[in-house]
């Protein structure tokens, strides 16, 4: 790994300031970034650790009834404390393994936007708001393709607000070696409709399966998925599964998530 300077600011303001330095890079829990650095795929001059920032830690409820998660909150903490949104807590409880969940953070996962990560599906299916040091971004505008988000250079995810659905569940089919989601689907039923977000499948990253949303908004039962299918074109194809296989898995996982949610 190339060497760098490490800084651990204790406030968001200090972190944002440190990130203005040339080639500065934010460090969340490091569960993706550290392996990346080891492979010399990144060469920051300064790493700005966000995990010592108290105001970015923890889970709480907003006045509007949303579950608010600080950007540097670990998956383990969300799994334990997001009891007001059981679908979210259960999703966080199945990311990686226990040691990874004790370090990995929601902000790191969303900023990285790995096409096979779990959190993007949860945020998109929930219509979450991604709060940064400078603005609020709707999940629908935030995810812009594999490893690409609306974040500007040096912008930090400080908090994520999740409207709590009436019913929800995240189901994933894990790739047996990496345990990442080969395909993961979050189904969330709100008073004004159902949202279905899919990770792991598309070459464009996390996406909403709008046909399923329309069908499930009209009829929240497994029957509603009946004739629906997704095209394998544009789906990720690799040695673990073809595009058509992933497209099929999306429907299967949606059905399982739905069954668990009901």
């Amino acid at each position: 790994m190339y060497n760098f300077e490490m800084t651990r600011p204790s406030t968001i303001a200090d972190a944002v300031k440190a990130l203005k330095e040339e080639d500065a890079q934010a460090l969340g829990g490091g569960q993706t970034l550290i392996p990346t650095l080891k492979q010399r795929l990144a060469m920051p001059s300064i790493l700005v650790s966000l995990t010592a920032i108290g105001e970015m830690q923890g889970v709480c409820m907003s006045d509007a009834g949303e579950v608010c998660v600080g950007g540097a909150t670990t998956h383990a903490t969300v799994a334990r404390e997001a009891t007001a949104y059981p679908g979210l807590a259960a999703m966080a409880a199945r990311i990686g393994d226990p040691a990874v969940r004790n370090r990995g953070t929601i902000g790191g996962s969303l900023a990285n936007n790995d096409p096979s990560a779990c959190y993007p599906a949860a945020a998109l299916a929930s219509g979450a708001s991604i709060i940064t040091n400078s603005r609020e971004i709707a999940a629908d505008d935030y995810f812009q393709g594999m490893f690409t988000t609306a974040l500007e250079e040096g912008e930090v995810v400080t908090e994520v607000r999740f409207p709590v659905p009436e019913k929800s569940h995240y189901e994933k089919f894990v790739q047996p070696a990496s345990r990442f989601a080969l395909v993961g689907v979050m189904v969330a039923k709100y008073a004004d409709g159902v949202r279905v977000a899919v990770t792991g499948a598309s070459e464009s990253g996390v996406f909403r399966w709008t046909e399923a949303e329309a069908a499930l908004s009209a009829n929240f039962t497994a029957d509603a998925l009946g004739d629906l299918s997704l095209d394998g074109d544009g789906m990720i194809a690799d040695l673990h599964g073809s595009g058509a296989y992933r497209a099929h898995l999306v429907k299967v996982m949606t059905g399982r998530a739905l069954k668990a949610a009901i």
């Binding site: 490490m6 651990r8 569960q31 393994d97 040691a99």
Partner: peptide, 28 residues
């Protein structure tokens, strides 16, 4: 050394973490 095997698991403030996927400076 790639965060997968868990042979390096230690406890940091009581929580299990992979010592190969955390910087020493973060454990200050």
């Amino acid at each position: 050394d790639t965060s997968q095997c868990g042979a390096c698991v230690v406890h940091v403030n009581g929580e299990a973490v992979k010592a190969c996927t955390m910087f020493a400076a973060e454990a200050d």
